[in-house]
Design a protein around this nucleic acid. Structure first.
Lengths: 226, 226
DNA sequence: TCTTATATAATAGTATTACTATTATATTTG
DNA sequence: CAAATATAATAGTAATACTATTATATAAGA
């Protein structure tokens, strides 16, 4: 598996950049270092100027790759969900039981331990960014515009794949997408709250209690509406 | 009830402003018009300059009331959750059954029809803002700092009140806060998705399907862990 | 009542941010 | 090897977020 991962390249829709960051050293530097800086200082304080300083290129050169920092965040988002979809497909092939596949999917969403480095990208860090910053890429007045440009396609595709598993378990179930996004955004939120606002969540000393909670929730809802 | 609402003033922690906006006409103008502008153009494009223009006061005067626009958003957030807590208490007093009280609470969270104007504030609009912008007040690197200043106290208090109802229903239940925040943020998200990213949710033609979904989810989880 | 203190508002700035137009330097292709 | 093209660097600008200072109104005490 590690071998396959090492050779994997994730391809991103052409609408999400001006110049493909994978096509040059500068481009790859932009991606790699933006993850570091956003992780360090948060998306609001992240600027192309600061990024330019760390990679020792003028900010204008970064603008050749991305229209603005929101587009860069959307790119990272898209990359993350494409990677997650790949992981999902990889880990669920050859498993007949849709219940088992759903369990794997929820584990994938709720687990924080992503130790791989793929495509040069540190998965743990991009996961951490996603938890804290991803909502900002759709919670904007431009959402309809960038949606048309395909900004959320990987996310939709990932959600759709899990929804299909749910429908396999219970073809009568009415809320597959609702359930999946509730789990994804809920799990992200609980991780964030556990670290910063503990009174808004419940920290149990059971390992993977977030996984347990959402797995339970999912199966209860799916089987109840049968 | 309308009479009581008309006379109600919601009091906000002194840490969430520099000068109490309720203490002057300018202050009240700041609150009322900021809601309009944020609703119209989104929080990112909202500036004190623009607000100053519409209320015909220089932006520097607004800085006397709020440190920055994030503090203003936090104030609106806090106002909203204090109001929601008031509503919750009001609507659940004299109801013995904790199940019925929880139902009322979830209806309150998930319902979009808030037609009242209280304290001069248009509830429907502040609710709409909360759906799209509230996450931005905690998804920031300053979260720990502003948390210490009490920025999220009203939210925590609201969550805590509902958690207590859940514990009444099932004293063994392990995840009351997790469940409540999952419902609150999930319901907000589904409203947003229904409007902008329909493929990420399920739009049923049943009225109040979001309420139904989360009410079901809540009771299933609470009763299962008994 | 008048002076003084204090609250409040307006003026006039600055540093930073987000972005663009233009020029220079590589690299590729015929 | 020249021309075309891709890429990067320079040098800006308008807008944003904020502050220091000055002016004006209001309230309190003598």
């Amino acid at each position: 598996m590690k071998h396959i991962l090492a050779n994997l390249k994730i391809s991103i829709s052409k609408n999400l950049y001006l110049t493909d960051p994978n096509s040059s050293i500068l481009g790859r530097n932009i991606i790699l270092n933006s993850i570091e800086i956003i992780d360090e200082m948060g998306f609001e304080k992240f600027t192309f100027k600061k990024l330019g300083n760390t990679i020792e290129s003028p900010e204008a050169s970064i603008y050749r790759y991305f229209k603005n920092k929101n587009q860069l965040l959307t790119y990272l988002n898209s990359w993350y969900w494409s990677y997650m979809e790949y992981q999902l497909v990889f880990e669920t092939t050859n498993i007949d039981s849709p219940e088992k596949r759903l369990e794997k999917a929820i584990l994938l969403i709720t687990s924080n331990s992503k130790e791989y480095i793929i495509d040069g990208i540190n998965l743990a860090k991009i996961h951490k960014i996603l938890i804290a910053e991803s909502a900002k890429s759709y919670l904007t007045k431009d959402v309809d515009k960038i949606n048309k440009e395909g900004a959320f396609q990987s996310y939709k595709q990932f959600v759709s794949r899990i929804s299909e598993i749910i429908i396999e378990i219970n073809p009568q179930y009415l809320y597959p997408q609702m359930l999946v996004t509730t789990i994804i955004e809920g799990a992200h939120l609980q991780s964030f709250f556990a670290e910063h606002l503990p009174r808004l969540t419940n920290k149990l000393n059971t390992p993977n209690y977030i996984t347990t909670f959402y797995t339970n929730l999912a199966f209860l809802s799916i089987k109840d509406n049968k």
